[in-house]
Design a protein around this nucleic acid. Structure first.
Lengths: 337, 337
DNA sequence: ATTTTTTATGCAAACGTGTGCATAACCTTC
DNA sequence: GAAGGTTATGCACACGTTTGCATAAAAAAT
């Protein structure tokens, strides 16, 4: 009844050879005669021999698996990154162990534990929003497991990272807004401890300065969820000196911003311009369609996976930290003039 | 330099015991004295002993890993399912090995191979659109690996499945369209060999019959991508007897349909009603927002994972095929009257 | 005091591979 | 024909666990 898969030992017994000979024959060791090599390989082929990866892993202490921790799965950007990681890993014959922190610190810690217990060769991680304690990430490094951060890097940990060029993306978008006549440009960002938000804000501010526009505190808000959008944006619209453009940290906020602005009776882009960030699918279905900054998540995923694999296999030998920057591209649609 | 993780053997040596005793002490075997048990467990705790899962897997021939094959990752519905699978697997201490067929038959076959080679305990799969040959799925069963299909089931393979109640979802949507005064309701579906499409079409037809509306061939089209939408919908709008409602197989097509219909000068929902399927994120950002049928992807993922794990652990003992139906819910928004 | 039972521990094999070393057989060379 | 070289194969162990069986020591029963 039980159909046990065929092993090297079985082949050895059947062909009256030792397992070592069979093992060597399979991997084309030079000290094996052409004759027996063919014999063994043919027999293996016929009986559909599959090396037991578990045994192999135990032997070599390498399981060819890399772990991924994302803060969210149902998310255009992160799923794009995941797709890139997946493709790169697959082409290099690595398996993918996926964990989802769900933007919760505790689950992030647990995910790290899970991956270390599974003895992965390396970990790709994007930090949860509310993670302020970094001990668990340090544990990875202390265990001599390679670690590469992508997008949401961890400021307290000194390790390789792949990030989008947030500064230039933000600069390009705000520069465009200013050039098309907007002068009161609001920045809807995330918590200041997140580098992605800070970098974009610097791009935003520098673009304003380039056009000699003032950097006003009241136009810079933490507003990175749709809930916050419902709360923050209406208030801003009611001020005597309301913004004439919104540069949003992500496309969801931008889409909600668009709805709120329209509902308040303003025309987009004639009265108010709006730009998002990510260039997610939804930018094409709003009315008007949304201008956004493409983050190239797929490429970021590929790049991060490649870097990690290079580290694992010793191809990347740089002693210090390797930082890769993924270019960002402004995609102009109808929500800006 | 090399920081080798501590093993049972190390503990044994340090405490001058045999590895077997240490092993038993760790797992609370009754034939071990309270004294040594505490001694061992404390030492293990202090030295942060972690059982080597690879060795364990080899020993028990179970690696506590389940494989998932999805046709697409950057996809609201599939990523929702993935999130559900992930949560359920994690709570049952199973790892997740993820594969992405990218709607390509060849990659699907390769993914199955990958997962079988990795010796997963079971596989969750949703079929690629253009898969017509089922040999690779049969291989899974022949290898005595558990297999559960979700959503896009494979008609030729006799195994457990979890699907949405497509029939009732479609029925509810079309019923609603008819009740709100639509009488020329178009069905934009997928290829007929996909059960999800057929089931929805049956729901569509039955709802029409309930309202004694004719089932017209010319209003039933294969149109499941945005590319096809651009091509099919304008033609339908130009006919003398144009549809006054579109029931679309997914929300992307519905969103594009909405754009096309609006661009052609029709009002939604006054002139033409539109309903999607899935209840993805985009339904809330279009203008008007989109009526859709919620497929509860997350629940489907959880249910599928639970069923698979029950099979693996022998909890689910039913001899034949287990079929689970996930309820669907019509969510009414502004694109219908 | 001897036998039986109980209790706690160790030995050795197993899971499927890979590899250093030994060895046997064959071939070359003088 | 013996020494040395080459070629092909096998032995034994290692990776880290678990587990059936044997066994030593202690306790209980006769």
């Amino acid at each position: 009844m039980e159909k046990r898969p065929i092993t090297l030992k079985d082949i050895a017994k059947a062909l009256d050879l030792s397992t070592s000979t069979v093992s060597r024959a399979m991997r084309g060791h030079p000290a094996i005669s052409e004759e027996t090599r063919k014999l063994v390989q043919q027999y293996a082929e016929e009986h559909k021999y599959k090396p037991n990866t578990l045994a192999l892993s135990l032997r070599t202490n390498k399981n060819n698996t890399i772990g991924v921790i994302v803060p969210e799965i149902v998310h255009f950007f992160f799923s794009s990154v995941l797709a890139g990681i997946q493709d790169e890993a697959e082409s290099e014959n690595y398996h993918l162990l996926m964990c989802n922190s769900n933007e919760m610190y505790e689950r992030e810690v647990k995910s790290v534990q899970t991956l270390l217990d599974a003895r992965v060769c390396g970990i790709l991680a994007s930090m949860s929003k509310n993670t302020l304690e970094y001990r668990h990430f340090q544990n990875i490094i202390d265990d001599d497991v390679h670690l590469v951060f992508f997008d949401r890097i961890c400021p307290g940990i000194n390790t390789d990272k792949v990030v989008a060029d947030d500064y230039r993306g933000a600069f390009a978008a705000v520069d465009y807004l200013a050039e098309t006549g907007c002068s009161r440009i609001a920045f809807l960002g995330a918590d200041t401890h997140l580098p992605i938000s800070n970098n974009r804000r610097m791009g935003y501010e520098d673009a304003l300065r380039k056009h000699t526009l003032p950097v006003e505190k009241k136009w810079i808000k933490v507003c990175d969820t749709t809930d916050l959008a419902q709360q923050v944006i209406p208030e801003m619209l009611q001020e005597e000196n309301r913004p004439d453009a919104f540069f949003c940290i992500n496309d969801e906020v931008a889409a909600y911003c668009l709805q709120i602005v329209k509902a308040a009776g303003f025309r987009v882009p004639e009265d108010i311009s709006i730009s998002g960030f990510t260039n997610a699918y939804i930018t094409e279905v709003t009315d008007p369609t949304l201008t956004s900054v493409d983050q190239h998540g797929y490429e970021m995923g590929r790049e991060a996976a490649r870097l990690l694999i290079n580290r694992i296999e010793g191809v990347e030998t740089k002693k210090g930290v390797v930082s890769r920057l993924i270019k960002t591209d402004l995609v102009i649609r109808q929500s800006t003039r």
